Simulated assay, not measured.
Amino acid sequence: MKKDDLLLIIDMQNVYDQGGKWECLDTRGAARNLLKIIDSGMENVIFTRFIADEISPKGVWADYNKKYSDVNSDTYANQMLREFNEPLKKFPLYTKSVYSSLAIPQVLEACRKTAQKGGRVVVGGVVAECCVLSTVLALIDEGIYTVYLTDAVSGLDRPKEKAVELTFSGLSPLHLKMLTTSQYMEEAL
């Protein structure tokens, strides 16, 4: 773990938890591992969440909103997992209505500043094959070195998680590094 790194926690909302409409394979395990990093003293953390743009969605997002209107209107489904209540008192939470967290200007700026200081963006959250994939590719396009936490990311199922890891293996080590939470935390400071 390096002190100049930024931990970017993507969309850890109830809808992706066990029993949620978009339940991911191991949201709980991802949450536990992200909390380990936070509890170890990580000082630079940002949370994002996905909330549908009901006012002026672009293109296919209007169809998406129509198809998932039940989720979009479910307050509980859109709340962050309760495990993050305490960290959310300390660290910012930004909202997006597209897959990539870099669509949020404050997140993009924080990631750029992290890279300028020699830090990396460490990514965890859900959904591996959707918002996480899109965010990591956007980070790479920005020239920002990324750490993908294999056990702090969850997808809808194991084949999709593995497909994302296979894709990223072709980009490693030049653009990103894939580590477990333990491996990341054991890195020299």
Rank of each mutant, 00 (worst) to 15 (best):
Ala110Glu: 14
Asp151Glu: 10
Cys131Phe: 08
Ala31Cys: 11
Ser56His: 08
Gln79Ser: 15
Arg82Cys: 10
Leu156Pro: 06
Leu102Ser: 04
Gly119Phe: 04
Arg120Asn: 11
Glu129Pro: 05
Tyr99Gln: 15
Glu43Leu: 10
Ala110Met: 07
Tyr99Ser: 12
Gly143Lys: 06
Leu133Glu: 11
Ala103Ser: 15
Val127Pro: 05
Gly118Ala: 01
Ile55Phe: 10
Leu93Asn: 08
Val123His: 14
Glu161Ile: 02
Leu108Trp: 12
Ala30Asn: 08
Arg158Met: 06
Lys21Ala: 08
Lys58Thr: 14
Leu35Glu: 13
Ala30Gly: 02
Cys131Ile: 01
Cys111Asp: 11
Lys67Thr: 07
Val98Phe: 04
Glu109Ala: 11
Lys67Glu: 14
Tyr64Leu: 03
Glu23Gly: 04
Asp157Asn: 09
Lys113Pro: 13
Cys111His: 14
Asp157Ser: 11
Val107Ser: 04
Ser40Asn: 09
Asn33Glu: 12
Gly41Trp: 00
Leu34Met: 13
Pro105Glu: 10
Gly143His: 06
Lys117Ala: 12
Val107Thr: 03
Tyr145Cys: 01
Lys36Gln: 14
Gly59Ala: 05
Ala62Gln: 07
Gly124Arg: 03
Ala52Thr: 09
Ser69Asp: 13
Asp39Pro: 04
Asp74Val: 03
Glu142Tyr: 08
Ala52Ser: 14
Gly124Ile: 00
Arg32Lys: 13
Ala30Tyr: 02
Ala30Leu: 05
Phe47Asn: 04
Ser154Thr: 04
Gly19Trp: 06
Val45Gly: 15
Val126Gly: 01
Glu83Asp: 15
Ile140Val: 04
Glu161Arg: 02
Ile140Arg: 00
Arg112Val: 03
Gly119Asn: 13
Arg28Cys: 11
Lys113Val: 10
Gly155Val: 00
Gly29Phe: 06
Pro57Cys: 02
Lys89Pro: 14
Arg82Asp: 15
Glu86Gln: 12
